[in-house]
Design a protein around this nucleic acid. Structure first.
Length: 267
DNA sequence: ATACCTGTTTCCCG
DNA sequence: CCGGGAAACAGGTA
């Protein structure tokens, strides 16, 4: 269930393994999550190291190990992290198992859209340090939103919000939640947006991102009750504000959900 | 059996 | 070279 806040929560699940040594490593011989990496590196280089630190940036995770080793992890669509007993035996979709003295850190991913990377060096890898400004950072300003809008005037807002170069960590449900709160139609183009809507879009991004972190990000589970989140998956879901039946349709390549009376497409 | 899916990458088009 | 959109990736679930 991987968007910004869910990724943060998933990452924290491995924190029980912090300051503990990796006794042994199991690597799936077939899972696609290793992509172009040499999967032998993961077992050869992580065995014997200690997990020192975990952090997230958008949907990306970085785990720091002793000896200047770094593990990058992306959950893709169906990836998840778990803690299992120390004698956990590899299951069908287990991509990476890190065995510790008292427990096993598990990364599983049935659809294998996730991704693992290894890095060795004194400093974090480029693919980590060169990420766009986090939406949780004070440096994430309305100028970033304005820049994205100005640069992609013909893209539906929904597709733009999902662009990780500007909004790292934004996923399908968060984008719908933001647009619903900003009263903007997902198929609206940025060319049609004035400064007032821009401001609204920016402030609702902050609201949703921080609200999601406070709920989902720290406790897991679902966002607050009145959020669109709880209505957007089912046919016949209703708008939490107005009560009308929500519309679901593919926009920007993804199923989108919006309230037809609150989010109008201006002519 | 069919359709659908909280994501990214690649390919193709204008 | 670009911006934008569709397809591909793969398997579980309803």
């Amino acid at each position: 269930m991987p968007e910004l806040a869910e990724v943060a929560y998933a990452c924290s699940l491995w924190n029980r393994g912090l300051s503990r040594q990796i006794k042994a490593v199991h690597v799936s011989p077939t899972s696609r999550v290793f992509r172009d990496e040499d999967r032998k590196r993961f077992s050869a280089e992580l065995a014997g190291k200690t997990l020192m630190k975990s952090e997230t940036h958008g949907k990306q995770m970085l785990f720091t190990f002793s000896g200047d080793y770094w593990l990058g992890l992306h959950l893709g669509m169906t990836g998840s992290l778990h803690i299992k007993e120390k004698s956990h035996s590899p299951q069908k979709h287990d991509a990476l198992l890190l065995f510790q003295a008292k427990q096993t850190l598990v990364f599983q991913d049935p659809r294998q859209f996730g991704r693992l990377r290894m890095h060795k060096g004194k400093h974090p890898p480029d693919w980590w340090t060169e990420q766009p400004v986090s939406m949780l950072s004070p440096k994430f300003t309305i100028e970033i939103v304005a820049h994205a809008l100005n640069r992609h005037t013909k893209r539906p807002l929904k597709a733009l919000l999902l662009d990780q170069r500007y909004f790292p960590g934004m996923g399908n449900w968060m984008a719908d939640e933001v647009l619903w709160r900003a009263n903007l139609h997902p198929n609206c183009r940025s060319a049609m947006i004035g400064p007032k809507e821009q401001k609204k879009l920016f402030s609702q991004i902050l609201f949703v991102v921080h609200g999601a972190m406070k709920s989902v990000g720290t406790k897991g589970g679902d966002p607050p009750k009145k959020w669109l989140f709880h209505q957007r998956w089912k046919d016949g879901g209703t708008c939490p504000k107005s009560g009308v039946t929500l519309i679901r349709e593919e926009i920007g390549g993804r199923t989108s959900c919006w309230s037809p009376d609150l989010q109008k497409l201006g002519e």
